[in-house]
Simulated scan of single mutants.
Amino acid sequence: MAAAGPFSEAERAAVYRAIETRRDVRGEFLPTHVPDAVLARLLEAAHHAPSVGLMQPWNFIVLRDIETRRRIRDIVMRRNAEAAAMFEDERAAAYQRLKLEGIVEAPLNLCITCDRERGGKVVLGRTHQRDTDLLSTACAVQNLFLAARAEGIGVGWVSIFEPDDLRPVLGLPDRVVPVAYLCVGYVDRLFRRPELEARRWAKRLSLEDLVFAEGWDRPWRFPPEG
């Protein structure tokens, strides 16, 4: 056991700053190489994520080869055309103007996968909720996002593809699911607000409307500010 207690004020502020200023990056990547030592720190942060039953179902595929990344970009472009057709009128036009990936522009890509057989047939804490392995992998993704923000590195999550699209390109076994495909690289500027909010695609919901007390749809009373 180790001593527990709050962080110092400066440490606490740094944690909250990373959370509040993290952005999904698509078009702001610099061509600067991400050193392996820095990448190793990001992967270490991801690997320290919580996982149900300590199953640690994640793997990380590092992608620097431009030809592999072009193959994946081509898949995303094809799926993006399908996605664009799902929107109508002004929404469709707005979608076409959005840049939703930086696969080739970023100097580095990562695919974070979930091995759905990791830990065996019965895993502590997963006996009644099968998808806790996927949820645990998502925690690793978030850890990486926050560590990258602290390093001045941007991360963009690309999700416009069917999971099986990546299987032949990356040689994924049947038991392994790609959870997150990430574009990674240094940035020198970030949107003050999430890009989709800045571009008026969506807006952040009010937290007060999302917190209930003792059951569904009974508002929790926030303390007065100050």
Rank of each mutant, 00 (worst) to 15 (best):
A3F: 12
E9V: 10
R12W: 10
R12T: 13
Y16G: 00
T21D: 00
R23D: 04
E28C: 04
L30Y: 01
P31Y: 04
T32L: 10
L39T: 02
A49S: 13
Q56S: 10
Q56T: 11
W58N: 07
N59K: 12
F60K: 06
V62W: 03
L63N: 03
T68A: 06
R73T: 05
D74E: 15
M77D: 14
R78W: 06
F87P: 02
D89E: 09
Q96A: 06
R97M: 10
L100V: 04
A106E: 01
P107S: 07
G120E: 12
G120P: 12
K121Y: 07
V123E: 14
L124R: 13
H128M: 11
D133P: 02
C139L: 11
V141Q: 08
Q142Y: 03
F145H: 14
R149A: 07
G154Q: 06
V155L: 02
V158F: 05
S159Q: 13
S159D: 11
L172A: 00
Y181V: 03
Y186K: 05
L190D: 07
L196F: 12
L196M: 12
W201R: 13
W201L: 06
A202K: 07
A202P: 00
R204M: 14
R204K: 14
E208D: 15
D209T: 07
A213R: 10
R218Y: 10
W220H: 04
E225P: 01
